[in-house]
């Protein structure tokens, strides 16, 4: 049995890491974007972003005041665990105090804020199972600026690949500078309405620049990335060549009569963190982050 206290400690740690240290794949994409810009305004925006990332690491401070709501991806290997739901909730409340994180989770109608980031079904925990000899817990803090621009389309099969591309273009035009570009598209294709949205979010866990293993999907990712960057929306919607840092797609088979497509937008602060916990209590943090 992995001790609950160890799991809680590790969860607080990934919450702290995710808020304060950006994964290297996102940092590198932002650096490339900065090098590709020639005009003053987009260069100034990307410089401010890169300087802020450095300052956040140096001071151990959350890089963005919107520390998001917390989406967990738990993968249970061949290990004994107990009470994961409550352990994760406790870790979120503790990290909200200790990091600190902004208390973002409110009741959707009364807007009452419990102040802990813990509420009904929040943090949201996705459970999966594997044959690994460890427990893996990933967290994605998701800010509202980007989430608010995320969209779902229930296309007809006749719309096909063109319909998906059309939807990607519309989604970026609708988002403009609002989701803190440069952004990342998590593209979920197929399944059902809820599955497509979920796949879009899951796709954002993949390191930037790592293409889908299937050529057809990988080509779609490349094509959307290259074309959208020609729109000229640019960093913070103030013009420039860097609108999209990446496109990651995941798909599921779907009903013969439908073609669900979802785009989950992630802001430049593409924060995520991961821990692997072994039965002997060892905790491994495999993600390469900015130091």
């Amino acid at each position: 049995m992995i001790p609950e206290e160890k799991i809680k400690e590790a969860c607080v740690e990934i919450l702290r890491r995710s808020a304060t240290q950006l994964p290297m794949d996102a940092v590198n994409a932002l650096r490339r974007g900065y090098e590709n810009e020639t005009d003053d305004v987009p260069r100034m925006q990307l410089k401010a972003i890169l300087d802020n990332i450095d300052l956040a690491v140096k001071t151990g401070t959350p890089m963005c005041q919107d520390t998001g709501v917390h989406i967990f991806f738990v993968n249970i290997g061949k290990v004994d665990v107990n009470g994961l739901d409550s352990v994760i909730n406790e870790a979120v409340a503790e990290a909200t105090e200790s990091v600190p994180l902004r208390p973002n989770a409110v009741h959707p109608l009364t807007r009452k804020n419990p102040g802990t980031n813990v509420g009904v079904r929040m943090p949201y925990i996705n459970y999966h199972f594997s044959d690994n000899d460890y427990l893996e817990i990933g967290v994605m803090p998701k800010g509202a600026g980007s989430e608010n621009m995320s969209r779902l389309a229930m296309l007809t099969p006749a719309k096909g690949l063109k319909g998906i591309k059309e939807f990607a273009l519309e989604t970026m035009l609708n988002a403009g500078g609002k989701p803190c570009p440069p952004v990342i598209f998590g593209l979920g294709i197929g399944g059902s309405a809820d599955i497509a949205m979920h796949l879009g979010k899951q796709a954002l866990l993949r390191p930037l620049g790592e293409r889908h293993p299937e050529e057809e999907i990988a080509n779609l990712e490349r094509e959307i990335l290259a074309a959208i960057n020609d729109l000229g929306i640019g960093p913070m919607g103030m013009g420039g060549n860097t609108t999209l840092l990446g496109v990651s797609a995941e798909y599921a088979h779907c009903h013969t009569a439908s073609l669900p497509v979802a785009i989950n937008i992630q802001c430049w602060a593409a924060r995520r963190s991961l821990v692997r916990l072994y039965p002997d209590g060892l905790a491994e943090y495999p993600l390469e982050v900015i130091q």
Binding site: A48, I49, L55, T61, P62, M63, C64, G145, C267, A269
Partner: peptide, 11 residues
């Protein structure tokens, strides 16, 4: 306009 997400620098 101020850079979105540059929260530590702005603080």
């Amino acid at each position: 306009a101020i850079t979105g997400g540059a929260a530590v620098s702005i603080a």
